[in-house]
Design a protein around this nucleic acid. Structure first.
Lengths: 108, 108
DNA sequence: CCCGCTACTCAGTGATACTGTGTACTGGTA
DNA sequence: TACCAGTACACAGTATCACTGAGTAGCGGG
């Protein structure tokens, strides 16, 4: 697949929110999960910047726990603001994708 | 609807390509068309920067014609490179939206 | 003892949509 | 005549985001 970078803007953060919302997890695992899901070129650096932004914006609750196989992990869970943001994300995605699909079908 | 700006990155240009591909048209009319289609907050300045980029990247053929109701219009039509780029856009959109929808449905 | 895997941080880059301002042509109207 | 609204385009500057690349560090195996 061609480069999806530009198209991911605004959606990748939502994907990370969705993953965190379904299960408390940490950056390294989120990256693997995204790769599994078909976001093949997403690398750790990208995910960590998103996670730091989510934390700075007060959308997540963070817990540091030892790992056993490496350095300690920072586990992320959505708080109320995070759940609201996630709902807004899906509403926007729904809105956008319906308009695009309509345009694709000849756009009346 | 909330601000779609970030989510439009990478897709708005594709939408403009699609509009041009379906009919030779000009910037002011493209803006109106996008607004009709539900891209309510897209303004002329945004569309013109996209059109100039398409021209610079050699994806369109441009013809200036007098208007009768105002200054002359720059009509845009896709050339072969533009049609290829449009096909790539739809392939990327298809790819991305299928992954996102899968993630939304619980993501297995 | 190094190497690979795990795990996170951060400064800098590039692309994109957007903002605001300016220019300019036309027709209507006060 | 003067002004204004609608049409039509250009362009410099801004913000945001995904990405790059380099660095730090813990753990286990050969």
């Amino acid at each position: 697949m061609d480069d999806l970078t530009e198209m991911l803007k605004g959606t990748l953060e939502g994907c990370v929110l969705e993953i965190i919302g379904s299960e408390e997890t940490y950056g390294y695992a989120i990256t693997r999960r995204l790769n599994e899901l078909g976001f093949a070129d997403v690398v750790e650096g990208t995910v960590y910047t998103i996670l730091l932004r989510l934390e700075r914006n007060g959308l997540v609750q963070v817990t540091k726990r030892p790992s056993g196989v490496g350095p300690p992990r920072k586990f992320y869970a959505l708080n109320d603001a995070g759940r609201e943001e996630l709902a807004r994300f899906w509403a926007k995605w729904q809105y956008l994708s319906s308009r695009i699909d309509r345009l694709k079908e000849g756009g009346r």
